[in-house]
Design a binder for these strands. Structure first.
Lengths: 108, 108
DNA sequence: TATATTAGTTCTACAATTTAGAATATAATG
DNA sequence: CATTATATTCTAAATTGTAGAACTAATATA
């Protein structure tokens, strides 16, 4: 198995999938990313990252069977796997631990 | 000026520079990285990242004037700039905010 | 039932970050 | 001054990050 490294953008997208729950499909994720970061992102960037995350085993996905409001293709809904969640937690804990060692930030 | 994005490895290295203070030179940073992550890293990886971080204005550096124990080239000591520190804090705050929105992690 | 409209994914390509390791430089010591 | 130890600098390649065009499918409406 490959190393389970997590890039910056990958980490944020993984977190967004967790936050969005049932609504975790590419378009919505891109929207949410933009509203939370004030930073533009292309839909292609989101899709290819979501694919990579799936290949690594951090996400699963399935086509939504529902009927959209106006029309359009069916959504692909993403879900975090147990491994994905663990990797996310490890990344968080590691950063927290580093911040605690940073002089002047120990109790802030 | 380019966008001030911070990659995953860049962020960790920046934090390590802050933690190491006077001892923040490439070799030591690499050692510290390995001991904190249980993950091997090449010295070249550290050097090129430190350079990039400097070009972005997140780090400054100067040659140490001291004499080492046995021999060897003089160290290049790195220091975080005010911008570097701000970028680091922003990255941290953003992640914290995302975790707070993640159902099941709000108070943990 | 053909066509326009809307919503969404897939594909292709390129830029930036991350990674490794060889080459080189410098200082102390015998 | 040759050898050894300590570091940096350089070169190159793999992985991530990014953009946008092409494509697909469902619905509405004429």
């Amino acid at each position: 198995m490959k190393e389970t490294r997590l890039g910056e953008f990958e980490e944020v997208l993984l977190l967004l999938v967790g936050i969005l729950g049932e609504d975790a499909y590419a378009f919505k994720i891109a929207e949410e990313f933009e509203s939370q970061t004030q930073r533009a992102v292309s839909i292609g960037a989101v899709h290819s990252t979501l694919n990579r995350l799936s290949e690594k085993g951090f996400l699963t996905s399935e086509m939504g069977s529902s009927s959209p409001e106006r029309g359009g293709r069916r959504k692909r809904i993403y879900t975090i796997t147990a491994i994905g969640r663990r990797v996310l937690e490890e990344a968080r804990d590691f950063k927290v631990s580093l911040w605690q060692q940073y002089p002047g930030f120990a109790n802030g």
